[in-house]
Amino acid sequence: MKISCISIDDEPLALDLVEKFIKQTSFLDLKATFDNAIEALTFINKNEIDLIFLDIQMPDLSGMELARIIDGKKGENKPRIIFTTAYNQFAIEGYKVDALDYLLKPYSYEDFLKSTTKAYQYFENKIDSEKSTSDTKADFIFLKVEYQLVKVMLKDIAYVEAYKDYVKVHLNDKPNPLLSLTSLKSMEELLPSEKFMRIHRSYIIALDHIESVSRNTVQIGSATLTISENYKDGFMQFLNKWIA
């Protein structure tokens, strides 16, 4: 498997180093390099790219701004990002845009290889998942919890709650939710829409676990969750199908 990639950095030496490391790595296929994010965005919009090595501090359009634009694109085939930066204070922001990894300058080829191996495993798992779901849909997801990936069965999820830079995944029959460093938007894209629905800027619920519905709330277990006006019409369309 080859991973198509580009590199974006306004520092010539840094850009040359990434290009050198990419060419040393057999599973990477370098398509282009850019010294500014605006030209790179034009290229990304016209070409299918798997992976972007992206500096953060750049003039005109920063790497983080470009990452937010890419993260906002619809569809499952948007490119993934590995940040390459000298500033470690952007790590949390990187997780918010679902970056695969964060390389802190100056980094060695060993650091680069660890990061790109993680990317290779991600794309390999994605291909395997697509193959396995061509006939049947997966009944589980993996969540980043602390320093590991935790397998969670979909049937066990009661609801998902936004919590600062994290989400809380509340599970049936477990008192404490799983705390995962991701966004509610990413969870909404990950969870199957026939089983889960967003009812509030802070909540995604499992439709199978609804116990009762009042005018503006849903009861799931001991939790009473508000249905906001922005999501009420979509929820009522679902509910009207099942009203006797």
Rank of each mutant, 00 (worst) to 15 (best):
A40R: 05
I70L: 08
F112R: 01
M58H: 04
Q57V: 14
A99R: 03
F90G: 07
P79S: 06
L30D: 00
K31D: 12
F90K: 05
D98A: 09
L61E: 01
N36L: 00
I38K: 02
L54N: 02
K73G: 13
Q89N: 15
L100E: 04
I69L: 12
G75M: 11
I49A: 08
G72D: 15
P59T: 05
N36M: 01
L54V: 00
E93H: 13
D101L: 08
V97H: 02
L100M: 06
E39L: 07
F90L: 08
D111H: 06
R68V: 10
E93T: 13
A86Q: 12
D101M: 07
P79N: 06
L41G: 04
G63R: 09
D55T: 00
T33Q: 08
Q57N: 14
Y109G: 09
I69Y: 10
S108W: 00
E48F: 13
E76N: 13
T84V: 07
S62M: 14
A37M: 02
I92P: 09
G94A: 14
I52H: 04
S108T: 03
K74A: 15
N45L: 11
D60Q: 14
Q89L: 12
K31Q: 11
R80C: 12
D50E: 06
I38Q: 06
D98C: 09
L30Q: 03
Y107A: 03
I38W: 01
R80Y: 09
T42I: 09
A32T: 09
F90H: 07
M64F: 07
Q57L: 14
D60H: 12
M64I: 11
N88P: 15
R68H: 09
F83L: 11
K96N: 11
A32M: 06
A37F: 02
I52C: 01
E110V: 15
F90V: 02
E93R: 12
I81W: 09
A91Y: 10
P59F: 02
D111V: 04
A37K: 00
A67S: 14
L54W: 03
I81T: 09
I70M: 01
I82W: 05
K105H: 13
A86D: 07
K73L: 15
A91W: 12
D60G: 10
I38G: 02
N36F: 01
Y87N: 12
G94I: 07
K46M: 15
R80K: 14
T33E: 03
A40V: 04
A99V: 04
T84E: 01
I81H: 11
D98V: 11
I56G: 00
K96R: 15
N77D: 12
F83A: 12
F34A: 00
L66C: 14
A86N: 08
Y87L: 10
M58C: 04
D60E: 13
E110T: 10
M64C: 11
E39M: 07
L61V: 03
F53S: 00
Y102H: 14
F90P: 07
